[in-house]
Simulated scan of single mutants.
Amino acid sequence: MKKLLLGLTLVVGVSGVAQAAGDAAAGEQKAAVCAACHGAQGVSMVPNWPNLAGQHASYLSKQIMDIRDGRRSVPEMVGIVDNLSDQDIRDISAFYASQSGNLGQADPALAERGRNLYRAGDLAKGIPACTACHLPNGQGNSPAAFPVVSGQHATYAVNQLKAFRDGARSNDPNSMMRLIAEKMTDAEMEAVASYMLGLHGTNR
């Protein structure tokens, strides 16, 4: 736990460095190819693919650059982002950040367990509350590039948690998500992902 908290402190400090701004208007044109999977306004119709609408530009830029530069493996993105410049990526990220986030609905059968994990974690297992990085309303932390999780597809969120747990995804600063996900069961991941889907950017 001490290692995780130290990692959080370091990431917040390092990630706070200002980045060049993107142009949302230019990004709308550049994002045309993205619409097939992520929707015209960044809300995907397929739960395996992430909603991008309302996501922090800082987080999106990091993820797209990581995919382009081989630090994060996403086979579906091969060839799509290879030739994007840093400015292209910032513009696309700015466009999606300017869109309204998705409004999802949590599974009532999972909501209570998911809420407890999200808001309080599990001290006995060493799982911190998700609110520490993603805030009570699921809006994340833009300067630290911690993503918005409110309204994210539960299927996508579970897939990413499993990828962190299994080591298939390793672009999390200081292994923060890997250290958390390795302590979670599939059922816990499904519950917290369902709760995040229904957060709607509120503090419920």
Results as ranks from 00 to 15, higher is better:
Gly121Arg: 04
Ser44Leu: 07
Pro173Lys: 02
Gln29Cys: 02
Arg113Trp: 04
Gly126Leu: 02
Ala129Thr: 05
Gly121Lys: 06
Ala20Met: 13
Ala24Gln: 11
Ile89Pro: 10
Pro147Lys: 04
Lys125Ser: 15
Leu8Tyr: 09
Gly42Gln: 05
Gly101Cys: 10
Pro136Tyr: 01
Arg169Ile: 00
Cys34Phe: 01
Leu60Pro: 00
Ala32Cys: 03
Met65Thr: 13
Cys133Met: 01
Ser142Phe: 05
Glu188Ala: 04
Ile92Arg: 11
Glu112Thr: 12
Cys133Val: 03
Asp186Lys: 00
Asp172Ser: 14
Gln87Asp: 12
Gln19Leu: 15
Leu60Lys: 01
Met176Ser: 01
Pro173Thr: 03
Ser85Leu: 12
Val81Ile: 12
Ser170Asn: 06
Ala154Asn: 07
Gly7Phe: 03
Thr202Ile: 02
Gly167Arg: 07
Val158Leu: 10
Gln160Trp: 05
Asp107Gly: 14
His200Trp: 08
Val149His: 11
Asp107Val: 10
Lys3Glu: 07
Thr185Trp: 03
Val43Gly: 04
Met177Cys: 00
Val12Thr: 13
Met189Ile: 05
Pro128Val: 04
Ala129Met: 08
Ala94Ser: 14
Arg169Trp: 00
Asn174Leu: 00
Arg68Phe: 11
Asn141Phe: 06
Leu103Met: 15
Ala129Ile: 09
Ile67Ala: 12
Asp86Ala: 14
Gly104Asp: 10
Gly167Trp: 07
Ala57Val: 08
Arg71His: 15
Ser170Tyr: 06
Ser170Glu: 09
Ala109Cys: 05
Gly126Arg: 03
Asp23Lys: 07
Ala111Asn: 11
Gln105Cys: 02
Ser150Trp: 10
Ala94Gly: 10
Gly104Met: 14
Leu179Gln: 03
Asn102Lys: 13
Glu28Ser: 04
Ile67His: 08
Arg71Val: 05
Ala40Cys: 05
Leu135Tyr: 01
Ile180Lys: 08
Tyr59Ile: 06
Lys3Val: 08
Met177Gly: 00
Arg113Glu: 12
Ile127Glu: 01
